[in-house]
């Protein structure tokens, strides 16, 4: 699925928006999420999952190809923690949890 398909779903399912408006709104949703994460704030989407920022310490890693040690600098990364509801939807036969 691409952003264009999300736009199409919005256009088809929620009446009253033109194609252009649908595209602009979907862009805006992801743009605002980027701005929020870029401001150092996590996002919780109930029923879907949480986008969680994590600070990583500097460490010495290895180039996986050559085995050479290398410095991995301090950095902030984004992780996604799926909700139990989403897990349940992907695994209908087992109980969510």
């Amino acid at each position: 699925m691409t952003k264009a398909e999300i736009v199409q779903a919005l256009y088809d399912r929620v009446g009253g928006f033109s194609k252009k408006e649908s595209a602009d709104l979907v862009d805006l949703v992801f743009e605002m999420m980027k701005e929020t994460l870029g401001g150092g704030e996590n996002i919780k989407v109930s029923g879907f999952g949480n986008f969680v920022l994590r600070d990583k310490r500097q460490r010495t890693g290895r180039n996986p190809r050559t085995g050479d040690p290398m410095e991995i600098r301090e950095r902030r990364v984004l992780t996604f923690k799926r909700s139990n509801k989403l897990r349940g939807i992907l695994n209908p036969a087992r109980k969510a949890g």
Binding site: K34, L37, G38, G39, G40, E41, G49, F51, L53, D55, E74, R75, R76, V77, L78, T79, F80, R82, L86, R87, L90, N91, R94
Partner: peptide
Amino acid sequence: KRLPKFKVGKDLERIVDESRAVK
């Protein structure tokens, strides 16, 4: 089981790393 995996895009990866200075 099936679980979703998220991989951050290049642009957002950079934006997020730069937010270290913010918070």
